[in-house]
Design a protein around this nucleic acid. Sequence first.
DNA 1: AGCTCTTCCTGAAAGC
DNA 2: TGCTTTCAGGAAGAGC
Length: 288
Amino acid sequence: MPELPEVETVVRGLRAVLPGRTILDVRLGKADFIDDPAALAESLPGTRVLDVTRLGKFICIATERSEKTLGPHSASDPRLNFVIHLGMTGQLIICGAGDPVASHTHCFFALDDGRELRYKDIRRFGRMLLVPESGMAEFLGPLGKEPLQIGAEEFCRDLGSRRARIKALLLDQSVLRGVGNIYADESLFRARVHPAQIAEKLSKKQLLLLHRAVREVLTAAILLRGSSISDYVDAEGKRGTFQQRHRVYQRTGKPCFRCREKIRRVIVAGRSSHFCPRCQPVPRARKK
DNA sequence: AGCTCTTCCTGAAAGC
DNA sequence: TGCTTTCAGGAAGAGC
């Protein structure tokens, strides 16, 4: 499932291909995950891609309408951002226009170099929308800080003041944007913090360890092009390899790499959470 | 404020 | 064997 490292990998792949390209045509199949399918099909053709960036787990394809397609008296902003969330099973792939079509491919974006950007999404938990450049501030409003940019002090302040469970906060996109279940569990293990721990009760030292763990895990995962645990592939259709480095995620019952204790799985914040009971002590383990 | 439950969707895997 | 049930999960919304 695509989280920050997987989305970053896809973005880098798209950035190598899309900037400078003009989108010639849009074809849509099932479109129930698109905010406004008609607007998408209407507005994107004729736009030229300026850049591709990542905003948390969102992919932002910045485009500009060419002068020709702008009305002569149009005062509107020509910059239009094509924003995509991959959900659970979304894939953006660059391929030749004539390549065979994989099942569950719902969108085709024809490019001016004969290639095609395709969107495939088995479960259709993804999302697509158009955001004019002038509306980006509003779009970003509810989103939290980038996990790779937030400073240590800021991290301690934003999370350490909350009474929610630390796992819930790591997953909350309005606190940190981009961390999902895999990297939350992996970060907590490396920081030796139990997922159900109340953030407010963590020591400064624990918060600093966690801040560092989040950065290290995400950075290492990006280097390995993400984790392919089910069907994740990048823009070139390649799998990542960080799943081979997972310490706890989906390792229930297997020995901890650090102490050999069996990894356990519990539900925290409605998500399966994997941890080592010895390395990540249960909170408020009161005797009596 | 923060928790749990539900919904969306499909395919894999477990259960009978 | 084959059908049915369960589960997985990102995000949003409801209700407590």
